Simulated scan of single mutants.
Amino acid sequence: MAGLMDSVNQRTQLVGQNRLELLLFRLEGPQLYGINVFKVKEVLQCPNLTIMPKSSRVVRGVANIRGGTIPILDLSIATGRAPLEDIKTSFVIITEYNTKVQGFLVRSVERIVNMNWEEIHPPPKGTGRDHYLTAVTRLDQQLVEIIDVEKILAEVAPTSEVISAGVIDDQVQSQAVTKHVLIVDDSSVARKQVSRCLQTVGVEVTALNDGREALNYLKKMADEGRHPDRELLMLISDIEMPEMDGYTLTTEIRNDPRMQKLHILLHTSLSGVFNQAMVKKVGADDFLAKFKPDDLAARVVDRIRVSDGG
Results as ranks from 00 to 15, higher is better:
2 A>W: 14
14 L>N: 04
23 L>H: 11
24 L>W: 06
24 L>G: 06
28 E>Y: 01
30 P>G: 13
31 Q>T: 15
31 Q>Y: 15
41 K>Q: 13
42 E>G: 09
46 C>Q: 00
47 P>L: 03
50 T>G: 04
55 S>L: 08
58 V>Y: 00
61 G>D: 02
62 V>T: 03
65 I>R: 08
66 R>F: 13
67 G>R: 09
69 T>P: 04
77 I>P: 00
79 T>A: 02
79 T>L: 02
83 P>C: 02
84 L>R: 00
86 D>V: 00
87 I>Q: 03
88 K>N: 11
90 S>M: 00
91 F>T: 05
93 I>A: 00
98 N>K: 13
100 K>A: 11
102 Q>S: 14
111 R>H: 12
115 M>H: 08
118 E>K: 14
120 I>M: 15
122 P>N: 09
127 T>P: 14
128 G>Q: 13
129 R>D: 15
132 Y>K: 04
132 Y>L: 04
133 L>F: 08
134 T>V: 11
140 D>C: 15
143 L>V: 14
144 V>R: 05
146 I>A: 06
146 I>K: 05
152 I>A: 00
152 I>C: 00
153 L>I: 04
155 E>T: 02
156 V>Y: 00
158 P>L: 01
158 P>T: 01
167 V>F: 09
167 V>H: 10
170 D>C: 12
170 D>S: 12
171 Q>A: 13
172 V>A: 11
175 Q>F: 15
176 A>T: 07
177 V>A: 09
179 K>E: 15
181 V>R: 08
181 V>G: 11
185 D>F: 10
187 S>Y: 07
188 S>R: 10
200 T>F: 12
204 E>L: 13
206 T>W: 13
207 A>R: 11
208 L>S: 10
208 L>W: 13
208 L>M: 14
211 G>I: 06
211 G>M: 08
213 E>W: 14
214 A>Q: 07
219 K>T: 07
220 K>A: 12
223 D>K: 03
224 E>A: 10
224 E>K: 08
225 G>M: 03
225 G>E: 03
227 H>M: 08
227 H>T: 07
229 D>P: 03
231 E>K: 02
231 E>D: 05
232 L>T: 06
234 M>A: 11
236 I>N: 11
238 D>C: 09
239 I>H: 06
246 G>P: 08
246 G>D: 09
247 Y>C: 01
248 T>C: 05
250 T>L: 01
251 T>G: 03
251 T>D: 03
252 E>W: 02
253 I>R: 03
256 D>C: 03
261 K>R: 08
264 I>R: 01
271 S>F: 14
274 F>V: 06
274 F>R: 03
277 A>Q: 09
279 V>E: 01
281 K>L: 03
283 G>E: 01
287 F>H: 06
289 A>M: 11
290 K>L: 06
291 F>G: 09
293 P>W: 07
296 L>S: 10
299 R>Y: 15
302 D>N: 15
309 G>C: 04
